[in-house]
Design a protein around this nucleic acid. Structure first.
Lengths: 117, 117
DNA sequence: TTGTTAATTAACGAATGAGTTAACTAGAGC
DNA sequence: GCTCTAGTTAACTCATTCGTTAATTAACAA
């Protein structure tokens, strides 16, 4: 049994690596196999494989299977959690973000009653 | 000379620790000295001191001086950088965020021409 | 069956991160 | 000067992370 680290820590830690962020950026353009994700990077395939596992553990990536390939997809729920975490601080860096905050609340499903035209 | 790690990595890494995020949350309520920041946590003062250094290096906290105290303040520029990084992905988790995106662009000063009523 | 491709697992080393206690710096107050 | 308080630096663990190469699994192709 591993000591369970809270979700946000896992997510932030996963994002704290430029190679992993590059992989997410690639996946934002569409699904990609492990090999395709590895191609632009100057590291071994096992290293890429473990980067992907970190992203999976954080919930940022999911893997499918197609014969011997593992098509990877971007998953955004963790990013929404970051948005939610950020909402505490957003007022500090922009005062006129009330509209934004409302929007995010709607999006997060935390208060769906404030919908506007 | 240290090998310079990119800013976003430093910021995300700083946020990947629950103690440090708790300190930021405390600072969101106003300035606090190192001792005040340490109080709620069950770790030694040197540990807190180094957590603060990590936050400072990430630009999330700045320290002043008042006699032998070091009042710490929340700095939000790094959080804005995260917002900017997130903007690439925001469209994935919410389609109707055009208004939000516009807002953020305005806020980031990247395209101030789309301001609307 | 044999070989090839895609990806993961194993085993290891180097660097980093987070914690500790002990020692130090620096300002305040007497 | 001496002492107390606030905070940092030093020296040391221990665990994790990130990279490597070698071995393994699994699916296809001949």
């Amino acid at each position: 049994m591993q000591l369970q680290v809270d979700e946000l820590s896992t997510i932030f830690a996963a994002l704290a690596d430029p190679t992993r962020r590059a992989m997410l950026a690639r996946l934002a353009a569409g699904e990609a196999t492990v090999g395709e994700l590895a191609a632009p990077h100057d590291i071994s395939l096992p290293a890429v494989s473990r980067h992907l596992k970190v992203l999976e553990r954080a919930g940022l990536v999911s893997k499918g299977r197609d014969a011997q390939w593992r098509p990877c997809r971007l998953e955004t729920k963790p990013l929404e959690e970051i948005e939610e975490w950020m909402s505490t601080y957003r007022k500090f860096f922009e005062g006129r973000l009330d509209a934004l905050d409302t929007h995010l609340n709607v999006i997060m499903g935390r208060s769906a009653e404030k919908e506007e035209s």
